[in-house]
Simulated scan of single mutants.
Amino acid sequence: MSLEESVKDLKNALSILTDRLSSIEDKIKDDGSGEDDLTKKLKDMEKLIKRNTKYADLLDVECNMPNMRGRLPPKFTTADLPKFKGTEHPAHHLRSFVQAMALKEVDASVFPAIFPSTLEDVARSWFFSLDPTRVSNWEDIKKEFLTQYSSNADLLITRRDLEVTKQTEKEGFTDFLARWRNKAAKMIERPPEAEQVDIFVKNLREPYKSHLRYAGIESFARLNKIGIQIEDDVVESTAKNQTKVCFKDKKNFASTSKGGDIVNTVEQKPRREFTDLGMSLSRALDRLIKEGYIKPIGPTPDPANKSPKWRENEYCKYHRGKGHDTDYCFTLRNAIQNLIDNRTIPLPKAARKPNNNKNPLGDVKPSHR
Results as ranks from 00 to 15, higher is better:
residue 255 S to P: 00
residue 83 K to G: 06
residue 325 D to H: 08
residue 55 Y to M: 13
residue 63 C to E: 11
residue 264 N to K: 12
residue 324 H to D: 07
residue 190 R to K: 15
residue 226 I to Y: 11
residue 82 P to A: 04
residue 273 E to H: 02
residue 121 D to L: 09
residue 347 L to V: 05
residue 170 K to R: 14
residue 108 A to Q: 05
residue 293 Y to F: 15
residue 223 L to T: 03
residue 24 I to N: 02
residue 240 K to F: 06
residue 326 T to V: 06
residue 28 I to K: 03
residue 19 D to M: 06
residue 173 F to D: 10
residue 224 N to V: 06
residue 299 P to G: 11
residue 152 N to L: 04
residue 189 E to S: 09
residue 251 K to H: 00
residue 94 L to T: 03
residue 89 H to D: 15
residue 264 N to F: 12
residue 355 N to P: 06
residue 31 D to P: 01
residue 274 F to C: 02
residue 292 G to Y: 11
residue 340 I to S: 05
residue 289 I to T: 09
residue 51 R to Y: 12
residue 276 D to G: 03
residue 159 R to N: 11
residue 366 P to K: 12
residue 150 S to I: 14
residue 179 R to E: 13
residue 308 P to T: 06
residue 244 K to A: 03
residue 334 N to E: 06
residue 352 R to G: 08
residue 83 K to Y: 04
residue 128 F to C: 02
residue 24 I to W: 08
residue 71 R to Y: 12
residue 188 I to N: 10
residue 87 T to V: 14
residue 10 L to G: 02
residue 117 S to Q: 00
residue 239 A to V: 11
residue 342 N to D: 12
residue 103 L to D: 01
residue 363 D to N: 15
residue 111 F to Q: 00
residue 292 G to P: 08
residue 18 T to Y: 01
residue 208 Y to N: 06
residue 229 Q to T: 09
residue 209 K to E: 03
residue 196 Q to W: 00
residue 133 T to W: 12
residue 178 A to V: 09
residue 107 D to E: 06
residue 363 D to Q: 12
residue 294 I to V: 07
residue 82 P to Q: 00
residue 348 P to G: 01
residue 297 I to K: 12
residue 311 R to L: 10
residue 175 D to Y: 04
residue 139 E to R: 07
residue 199 I to T: 00
residue 355 N to K: 08
residue 187 M to I: 03
residue 248 K to Q: 07
residue 94 L to C: 11
